[in-house]
Write a protein that binds this DNA or RNA. Structure first.
Lengths: 226, 226
DNA sequence: GTCTATAGCCGGATAGAC
DNA sequence: GTCTATCCGGCTATAGAC
């Protein structure tokens, strides 16, 4: 799987997320026409993620958000009930959506080695397509209220569990021989996260996502056998 | 080198940093008695780092800082000139200090393999002793003004360069056979950062810093030969 | 559905008393 | 050196016009 293939097969991630938000959060959204609501939700969430990635969610004011979206304060408050609500919706809906895509792609592979490669690639490719979402999850989870933080931690651990399962399957099939599966799985994640957290570095070195994926895969595979 | 040894040899990192701040920033510090000034600076910087790690620097108000330090607004402003000044001083003085310690410990080793292990250990051990500083560098650099961001990036690249140099030395001495030294060095950093960025995970699994260091060292060493 | 206007609060920063 | 009191601008959130 190459990035260009992945990208062509996938369009409108954000639209899909916003349509889910419209359906699930109808109590806090005053607008009833789906087409209009989804269009404005995309505008708002794209803008919120852009501003958050520039200055952090807490430093982003709703006036900033008005400027970026072209909407007024009153209009914004027709699409969410408080600023914190906005934060929670991005976190929950985004994580849920990305978890779904990850699982779908991994299940298309059948051997453990293939699953591992698929999991690494789909994570890197997704974070290439929608980096602000990944940066948001990482940067803001730390500052959320306890109840929301628990959901963020659950998502982090769910991703880790995907890798644990793949590595254990590989151990059973004797294609891997890993002593400490949990520790191995838990250090794979930061290697994937570096791609979007230090994007400036890889951009300046002109390293495309496929080259990064190739490197990470061979790097990790070297450690999977004694 | 074990963590307990490292910890015993080192005391008063924060005091040392604050003494440097007092000496270098005398123009923005109105207090003249060194003893008093250093004591209050430690109080202020410890509190600022604690609050920043809880809610982020921009969400930390100076009134929060008053509460945490027990000092008044007026008193605080005798120790720095603006809130942003406080941010910049933590970033610059902290990075400079930590860079110095890293270099000192690495130079005590002579073979490339030993240097690599020393570099990994000293980075992990330092981040174990003063995690809030490392978290601060990581979390806040992204939101700094361009000029300060450049300094943060320079620090990140300087650490990376330390690893590049060690890996190249190892290649020359033929103890390593690494194809892409820069990429290898650049993925070592996130493995070190995971220790303080996901501390909650390792704490809950009761993994001490020495065990993490041992794992990371053997994990990385598996990738250094063809 | 979207706008403008405004309430009410909290932020950074400073002046001047002690 | 440290404190209290205060300025004023910007913040979230809402009410009511269109």
């Amino acid at each position: 799987m190459k990035f260009s293939d992945f990208k062509n097969h996938q369009t409108g991630f954000v639209e899909e997320i916003c349509r889910n938000i419209f359906k699930e959060k109808s109590h806090s959204i005053k607008i009833k026409k789906e087409g209009l609501a989804v269009k404005n939700l995309m505008n708002i969430y794209n803008a919120a993620l852009k501003l958050s990635s520039e200055k952090g969610f807490s430093a982003m004011s709703l006036r900033d958000l008005c400027r970026e979206t072209g909407l007024s304060m009153g209009a914004l408050y027709s699409y969410f009930s408080t600023k914190e609500d906005l934060l929670n919706i991005i976190q929950e809906q985004g994580q849920q959506f990305i978890g779904g895509i990850m699982k779908k792609y991994i299940n298309e592979a059948d051997k453990a080695e293939e699953k591992l490669r698929a999991a690494i690639r789909v994570h890197l490719y997704l974070s290439e397509i929608m980096p602000q979402w990944f940066i948001f999850f990482f940067m803001e989870a730390r500052y959320m209220v306890k109840s929301e933080q628990k959901k963020a931690i659950a998502s982090e651990l769910a991703t880790e569990q995907i890798f644990i399962d793949i590595l254990e399957e590989g151990n059973r099939q004797e294609v891997f021989s890993i002593d400490d599966v949990t520790m191995t799985a838990s250090v794979i994640k930061p290697l994937l996260q570096d791609w979007y957290l230090k994007r400036w570095k890889y951009t300046s070195r002109k390293i495309p996502v496929d080259a990064y994926a190739d490197f990470i895969i061979q790097f990790i595979e070297k450690t999977l056998r004694r």
